[in-house]
Amino acid sequence: MKVLQLIDSLEAGGAERMAVNIANIMVDHTQGSFLCATRAEGILFNAIDNRVGYLFLNKKNKLDVRAIRTLMRFVKDNNIDVIHAHSTSFFLATIIKMFNKNVKIVWHDHYGNSEFLQQRKHKVLQFCSIYFSHVISVNQTLKQWSESHLNCKKVSYISNFVVNEKTNDKVTQLEGESGYRIVCLANLRPQKDHFTLLKAFNDIVKEQPKWTLHLVGKDFEDDYSIGIKQAIQDLNLNTSVFIYGSKKDVQYILSQAEIGVLSSKSEGLPLSLLEYGLASLAVVATNVGNCDEVINNDKVGILVEANNYVTLKKGLLCFIENIEIRKKSASELHQRIVNEFSSNQISKKLVDIYSNI
């Protein structure tokens, strides 16, 4: 069995990380593991195992004939049995399926705005789902949505998972004093609601001036990004809040922090939480998507209401002011991630899905 992961880009997003992670672990569980980035490469290119067959299409539009032909030839030449399409790459996978009846499609739904599914546009997806053999959803809400709205009878919930980075890069040195750092690993997008986080931290730093906040994630240099930078200026947080952009050495960055935070308005199952846990950070996160599954309903972290800077502030202060509670929570979350969200657990489920279709 040979499986191709299909993803739009290799930028440092959750869906992109999962596509790379799955391609890497499938090397040891299939006859051939492949990955295709359709529109853009990115920072995750260096994370691809050298045993994974790789293709970059440089697709310019939805119906780029050259790109479609290139992928059709790649699938045929490598005798690929399954295309595991992530997020919006389902459309290209469907075109390939129309010309190659033998290939099977598994679609992986990473939709981050699962709190606002009523706004989701899905007519094209609904049509394409006729050609899907299986749908994988990253949380139960998305699973129920797929079962109600798509034309594919086989739908599974499989959680995201985390793997140890093989890179030993230690490049990014965080600002601020060791032992007093909070990190937010999230691309600068409205869904992540950095403004509520900044408002909460602005109150915190007045009580705890040693603490610093570190924003790590892709900067799209758009209105949202400009607004964040302006808010930092307006709140006089220039010496307490730092923006780094996308980074390769995520595990090294996390090793320099004490607390990991997510202030999102909506999520699927955020990979950031799993990475925080793997790095043994104490975690404060908004109770959206499947964050409660990771945090285990406040047992191994603190869940707070979304879009509420007061509860977010209280959650962060709980860990800031109580070192023993912080260390205990971090240790218990780390053990939970190792036991429940490891690649060993997920690889078995994926192989079963691939085999059964």
Rank of each mutant, 00 (worst) to 15 (best):
L117S: 02
K121P: 00
L92P: 12
V106A: 10
K62H: 12
T141Y: 05
V138E: 05
K62L: 05
S137Y: 06
K101N: 15
V138H: 02
F132R: 00
R73K: 14
I80Y: 08
V52R: 01
V65P: 08
K76S: 14
N61C: 14
H134E: 13
A85G: 03
L55H: 05
T94F: 14
N100L: 14
V103Q: 01
S89P: 04
A67D: 10
H84C: 13
F74H: 01
V124F: 07
Q119H: 12
G53K: 12
F91C: 05
V65C: 09
I48A: 02
Q144K: 15
H134G: 10
R120V: 01
H134L: 10
T88D: 06
I83D: 06
G112R: 00
F99D: 07
H108E: 05
F56W: 07
V82R: 00
A93G: 11
F91V: 06
L125I: 06
V135L: 08
F74M: 03
N79V: 00
F132M: 12
A47D: 15
V65L: 12
L92Y: 09
H86W: 07
I68N: 03
V135R: 03
V103D: 03
F116N: 02
R73A: 11
L57G: 03
N139V: 07
S87G: 10
V103R: 04
H122K: 12
I83V: 11
L117V: 01
F74C: 02
I80M: 08
A85F: 04
N61Q: 14
K60I: 10
N78T: 03
K101Y: 11
V103A: 04
R66W: 08
V124Y: 02
N79R: 14
D81L: 01
F90C: 00
V103T: 09
K101A: 15
Q126P: 00
F116L: 00
R120H: 12
I130W: 14
Q126I: 02
K60L: 13
A47R: 11
I83W: 08
L117Q: 04
I105E: 03
T70V: 04
W107Y: 10
L92I: 02
K60E: 14
M72G: 03
K104G: 08
L125F: 09
F116C: 00
R73I: 04
L142E: 05
R69I: 15
H134C: 14
E115R: 01
V135P: 04
